[in-house]
Design a protein around this nucleic acid. Structure first.
Length: 264
DNA sequence: ATGACTTGTAATACAAGA
């Protein structure tokens, strides 16, 4: 069965519900993984998604910060959520889709300002989270199953994943340590960096353009923070990938844009 | 050199994003 799966950090699902509806319809998306929903579960805008045919959902949010969801046209065969770093801070959900694909939706901690775990607890948390993901891949032997990890990993691991590699080497999200932890994660799960099969590492590829730098999008001052990582059985079934950059031009956009993967 | 903007909370700034 062919499925179109997307991942999008919407930066508040209530602020972005019209964009979400437009994106899902224009792209005929079957399943979308959301991050930074920033809403408690009873207030999640579920009805308008149901009206569009997305009758199945997993939501795991909290007040103000973080929050993830999986919204689907198809019923889930199984589902769950894991607690990472002993904090139940709404950063993960998983679902098994018809056909057997195990889809994991992550929102990795952003890491704060200073890339030093000794003085910045947020950066320490981020490093521990990335290490825990790699440990989990090994312990659960994910490489043996069809598993797709998507979400906002808050790391741009390659030189061409940021608009200025040299200038940003000391910025959280692009430090050599974070890039090496992403590499370890890929190794731990025998994971393919899916978008880089379709856009080679020699070319820039971004999924986030900040709000703060004036005209960041127009000047293409971007970062690739949002990822799709596939185990060998899942990677073999992937046929296409697209970064839905156009959403960043819509009125009052999220700072992140969707990553879309076709599988099966 | 820093910050720039956006969102949520709660009430006028502040925390957080990255």
């Amino acid at each position: 069965m062919a499925l179109r799966i997307a991942s999008w950090n919407v930066n508040s699902v209530r602020q972005r519900s019209a964009h979400l509806a437009r994106f899902l319809q224009e792209n005929q998306v079957d399943v979308v993984c959301l991050q930074e929903t920033k809403v408690e579960d009873p207030d999640f805008p579920a009805l308008e998604l149901e009206a569009l045919g997305y009758r199945h959902r997993l939501i795991h949010g909290q007040k103000s910060y973080n929050g993830v969801a999986i919204i689907s046209r198809l019923a889930f065969e199984d589902q769950g959520k894991l607690v990472w770093c002993r904090k139940d801070d709404r950063r993960h959900l998983w679902a098994r889709l018809p056909g057997g694909l195990e889809l994991h939706n992550f929102y990795v901690p952003s890491g704060g300002d200073k890339p030093d775990p000794a003085v910045n607890d947020k950066f320490d948390h981020k490093l521990k989270f990335l290490r825990a993901m790699a440990r989990w891949c090994r312990k659960e032997t994910v490489a043996e199953r069809a598993v797709l990890l998507v979400g906002d990993m808050n790391v741009a691991p390659l030189d061409t994943d940021v608009w200025n590699h040299k200038r940003l080497l000391r910025s959280v999200g692009h430090t050599p340590l974070e890039s090496s932890l992403m590499k370890s994660l890929l190794k731990a799960g025998s994971l393919e960096d899916v978008p880089r099969r379709f856009v080679p590492p020699s070319e820039p590829l971004y999924t986030w353009w900040g709000y703060r730098f004036p005209q960041a999008f127009q000047k293409d001052y971007g970062w690739r923070l949002d990822h799709a990582l596939a185990t060998p059985p899942a990677a073999a079934a992937i046929t296409a990938m697209r970064v839905a950059k156009e959403t960043r031009t819509w009125e009052k956009p999220s700072d992140h844009v969707p990553v879309v993967v076709d599988i099966g």
